[in-house]
């Protein structure tokens, strides 16, 4: 009988990523409804010391494979290790983050464990003793309530959406052998090039200041960078701005770019094409600055300013600087 709510925690350079605590807290909530336990899987090299941290967020047991072949992340090694421990323990539910790494790993596991998964969920609950996963589809133009009949019932959780709740449990650390066969490891990381700007990725940002066609050109983004610097925000862009070559592709928010869920999304000079709205409508608060009062962005915005963004944004930066001083 499958049991336990399991998570695959994510660490990079020996520190847990925020999504790991979101996963642990969410798993705890589900497990409490099932009167079941939460188990976490932590993979990497030299990471055993951090594993117990997950106990703080409700994890009962942490299975750790500390092995040089698990650093850095590769699909082959991680999927083999997780599949092995999952097959040995038969989890009822297995949750991963819908981060870049989590998406890659979770989808490979769907194949290895021959099961089903709800990707990039914004809510998960228990209904009739089973996992019910709620996820945006068509980039959020509609939502699906997904039931997984395979085992384990898998879901990946959208980063930045689920609350982190402290709920101390044992967090007992148990070693396991990932059983890696070097002949099966066919991919390797040749080079890691860190983003020199050190800016927080759009998918992990608390605040995003985003600009569209209304920025009029690449130089227009200077005022958004200034506002972002004051707010500790990351700058994003609409497809129109990216396709015009004003901003790099990695900045694009929307159906063919990144789907983001910050606490605050400030849309500047973005009219709100449906494919853009799709990528940012799970933001907790949306503010829009646009001189066209009919712009569709205002239908999604919690706060709207109808005016010339080139006049409003520098003033907003000044005001925020004052408030945050």
């Amino acid at each position: 009988m499958a049991k336990g709510v399991w998570i695959v925690a994510e660490q990079r350079d020996g520190a847990f990523r925020k999504i790991s605590f979101e996963l642990a807290s969410t798993a705890r909530k589900l497990a409490d409804q099932l009167s079941d336990e939460v188990c976490a899987i932590v993979l990497g090299s030299g990471i055993k010391g951090i594993a117990g941290e997950l106990g703080k967020y409700g994890v009962d047991k942490v299975f750790v494979a500390d092995n040089p072949a698990l650093e850095p992340y590769t699909t082959d090694a991680y999927a083999a290790a997780v599949a092995k421990i999952a097959k040995e323990n038969d989890p009822a539910i297995l949750l991963l983050g819908a981060s870049v790494q989590g998406k890659d790993l979770s989808s490979r596991l769907v194949g290895k464990l021959a099961t089903g998964m709800a990707t990039d969920c914004t809510d998960v609950k228990i209904a009739d003793g089973k996992l019910l996963a709620i996820r945006p589809m068509y980039a959020g133009k509609c939502f699906g309530e997904v039931v997984v009949s395979g085992s384990p019932q898998m879901a990946s959780l959208r980063p930045n959406v689920f609350s982190i709740v402290e709920n101390a449990k044992a967090g007992a650390v148990v070693d396991f052998d990932p059983g890696l066969d070097p002949a099966q490891l066919k991919t390797k990381v040749i080079e890691v090039q860190k983003d020199a700007s050190g800016k927080v990725d759009l998918t992990e940002a608390n605040i995003i200041v985003s600009g569209g066609r209304g920025m009029k050109g690449p130089e227009g983004y200077g005022i958004l960078e200034e506002l972002a610097a004051v707010l500790g925000a990351t700058v994003g862009a609409s497809r129109a701005a990216v396709d015009a070559g004003w901003r790099p592709q990695s900045d694009q928010v929307g159906q063919t770019g990144k789907v983001v869920s910050p606490n605050l999304y400030i849309a500047c000079g973005i009219s709100g094409a449906i494919q853009h709205l799709a990528g940012m409508s799970s933001s907790k608060y949306i503010a829009a600055i646009n001189k066209d009062s009919e712009a569709p962005i205002f239908t999604k915005a919690d706060y709207g300013v109808v005016d010339d963004l080139f006049k409003v944004v520098p003033e907003l930066t000044k005001e925020c600087k004052k408030l945050l001083a």
């Binding site: 021959a114 099961t115 089903g116 998964m117 709800a118 019910l132 945006p136 589809m137 959020g140 133009k141 509609c142 939502f143 699906g144 309530e145 997904v146 039931v147 997984v148 009949s149 395979g150 898998m154 409508s281 949306i286 205002f298 999604k300 915005a301 919690d302 706060y303 709207g304």
Partner: peptide, 17 residues
């Protein structure tokens, strides 16, 4: 193995200011 049991429209956002 994974079935969309129900499709629903996105949650409505309250009207903004």
């Amino acid at each position: 193995k994974a079935k969309v049991a129900k499709f629903v429209p996105p949650p409505a956002r309250p009207p903004g200011k």
